[in-house]
Design a protein around this nucleic acid. Structure first.
Lengths: 192, 192
DNA sequence: TTAATAAAAATGAACGTTCATTCTTTTTTA
DNA sequence: TAAAAAAGAATGAACGTTCATTTTTATTAA
């Protein structure tokens, strides 16, 4: 088939170029020509892999989101206790944001601008299901506060986000102690 | 003088149009022509009030930031106790984000994209000085944790941000109880 | 007060550029 | 040698900005 013959490397190069350029300039200040150049490809070639610019960025968003959630749940097992599960997932997310900061930054930008269309946004959220399941379990057994999943996620991810934001802006140097502190704050805010 | 004769109304209309359009479409998807149309002005007229598009958006950012901080400190007095001061400012910020949500949304977008240039960003931060002073006082008298202002701000504003984010996305309906809860979480995370 | 005039403000059309996308041709693969 | 993939050049639309003019406002002279 046509699609299968096309080089997966080229597709990946295009996605990587998109991430890098959008991170530095934003969606609308990133021309297709530059994406092509960075991926060592002709502008026209992009259109063999993606419908248009919007499709390229949507696809990139979903791909990065998938990488993110896969990383987050890598060492998590549904049979774990709720407390343990929360700790593991939380720390994996922290790890991801630190070690894969380019991906993390891209996701942050996508989530704060009108750059991704609604269907793709919804698609990206689906992958968080294991975390929602964990919370449901925690609420049922009384380990976790009986509030909406949205709030739970907000509270639990919150200390981490700002820690990283502050660090990114060069406000201070992040230590393990900081992270542990943030993690405790997160757990305290959601535990029953 | 030339500048003084120009209509302040027109300038304000341009700033308001910028806020509204950038909120809905983002900086680069907001053409000068549309800003002009919304402000009932010719495109060329914009350039009598602002150097160029970047200057328009920088100026708008600083203006909105000024409105924000003025609101935040409106009922605050430097002679208040630290706990009281924190509560008042925190709740004013919450109020602002709820009641002046268009301004708040604009600031959020500016703070999460490469849309504002660095000098204007720095300019915008200056206005938060009274809060920094309050924290310094809190740290000296031992009421507040001895950590960096950046972290303090991060922790304290965090529960609020996510509450509002979740609400904005229609996840749930915000109540006073939610806000009180978030405020307590904020204070707990920074108190000594 | 009015008419004449100068200056400022505002305008719509036009310019040059940039961009996403398509078209035609060339290269690669099977 | 035929079909798929890739390329570069071309296209047309959209944009920020400027230009030449007109309209409005302020000033002066009668």
């Amino acid at each position: 088939m046509a699609t299968l013959q096309k080089s997966i490397d080229k597709r990946n190069a295009l996605i990587q170029a998109t991430i890098s350029l959008v991170n530095n300039n934003g969606f609308h200040a990133t021309p297709m020509s530059k994406i092509a150049k960075m991926a060592n490809v002709s502008p026209a070639t992009i259109y063999l892999y993606f419908e248009n610019k919007q499709d390229l960025v949507n696809t990139t968003y979903i791909a990065v989101k998938a990488i993110y959630t896969q990383y987050a749940f890598e060492t998590y097992d549904e049979k774990m206790e709720v407390v343990k599960g929360f700790e593991i997932i939380w720390k994996r997310i922290a790890d991801f944001k630190l070690k894969e900061s380019e991906y993390a930054q891209f996701l942050a930008q996508c989530d704060n601008t009108p750059m991704i269309d609604e269907p793709s946004r919804k698609e990206g959220i689906k992958h968080l299901q294991p975390l929602l399941d964990l919370w449901e379990r925690g609420k049922q057994e009384g380990t976790i506060k009986p509030i909406s999943d949205y709030l739970l996620y907000a509270y639990s991810i919150n200390p981490l986000s700002f820690l990283l934001m502050a660090q990114e802006r060069g406000a201070f140097k992040l230590t393990n102690e900081h992270l542990e502190h943030a993690y405790q704050a997160a757990w305290n805010s959601i535990k029953a």
